[in-house]
Design a binder for these strands. Structure first.
Lengths: 192, 192
DNA sequence: ACTTTGATTGACTCGTCAATCAACAAAAAC
DNA sequence: GTTTTTGTTGATTGACGAGTCAATCAAAGT
């Protein structure tokens, strides 16, 4: 079987298996052996393609974030009006895919990691900055100078609603979108 | 040295040490030995007073939540107007004590635990329900029928802003209180 | 004095897991 | 046809950590 060009295939499989394992465990307390077994290889191979357990976990987190980033970009591409841009960002953040157990587990553990792991903190900062930038850009025509602070408020609402829906009874984002919209209307309604 | 009535003292010391250790590690990946050493006792004693590591961690989480609950209750006691009640809840949620590294670590890991540990999930549900109840009660005179949904929105904002401040550059809650107030004004401003 | 009882520990067991290594298989290169 | 490169694993190691236990110590009760 050992054909050429296995590297990217194995890496992808291992990352996928890592995410699945994290989702099943709910935490980063996963073993390399279990991951490797799920990917259909030996644990030694996981160490071969990734330096060690840490690198595997980082790669998994990075993959999750890149998927989310791509969804946001896709949502923004098809939006013409400022309001549609905001709605797109919100919709992407509350898309069904974001509420898969593995994705929820990844995000929550990412927050935990961001406390102490400089790499994770930096990555989180990048994604938060990008989100804020997108929101400010969309809000500028609607709110003028108040765009930055409203963006911060919306970003916090997105995070807060996500966690509440992720850990609450409703396993999807139903209602969250409407709640953000109502809040935005309220904030835009009152003049400077 | 072995006097009588050491049980509560040791338990308290062990809980305190556990929280400190969690704060230092940033995660629940702490060893009983380290905790016991920090509390000035042997690891065997930790197993003696608590059944095992799990119980120790649960006790620590429970303590953190009870401290927060007490702070909220204290804030509500000295508030007379509905608006003062809301401000009190918000102020308690963003009090300096809530942003100590150990407390932040506890909350973030509590979210992680709530995914899969039924006990943690139940505890979280209780505290969220209590927060929502307090908010609805305070909002009723101000918003009438819309109190429940506005409460949900405020609760999400509190959670979201907390996480952003906990993991962001600002290690305190400065600005968060004002942002909640502005959002609330917006939501109350527009009629049904 | 003697016994019971709570407090306390050091030493030990047992399991787990990350990481390493030597070796083997298959394809490619020469 | 040999050598090199790439893919792959089983077995092993070394460390670490949770939980147990028998034994010790000091006070309180009788």
């Amino acid at each position: 079987m050992p054909k050429l060009g296995m590297q990217p295939i194995r890496r992808a499989a291992l990352v996928k298996a890592t995410i699945a394992e994290i989702g099943e465990a709910g935490s980063l307390d996963v073993t390399v052996s279990k991951i490797a077994k799920r990917a259909g290889v030996s644990s030694a191979l996981a160490h071969h393609y990734f330096g060690g357990k840490q690198d595997l976990l980082v790669a998994a987190m990075r993959h999750i974030l890149s998927v989310y980033g791509a969804a946001v970009r896709r949502a923004l591409a098809g939006a013409k009006t400022p309001r549609a841009r905001i709605d797109g960002i919100v919709a992407a953040s509350f898309a069904p895919g974001q509420f898969e157990p593995a994705v929820i587990a990844a995000w929550l553990n990412f927050y935990v990691q961001a406390q102490s792991a400089p790499g994770a903190r930096r990555l989180l900062a990048v994604y938060q900055a990008r989100l804020r930038s997108n929101l400010v850009h969309a809000l500028r025509p609607l709110a003028g100078d108040r765009a930055p602070e409203i963006a911060e408020t919306l970003a916090a609402m997105i995070d807060g609603l996500y966690i509440r829906h992720a850990l609450g009874a409703a396993p999807d984002g139903q209602g969250a979108t409407a709640r953000v919209a109502a809040c935005l209307d309220g904030l835009l309604g009152e003049g400077a």
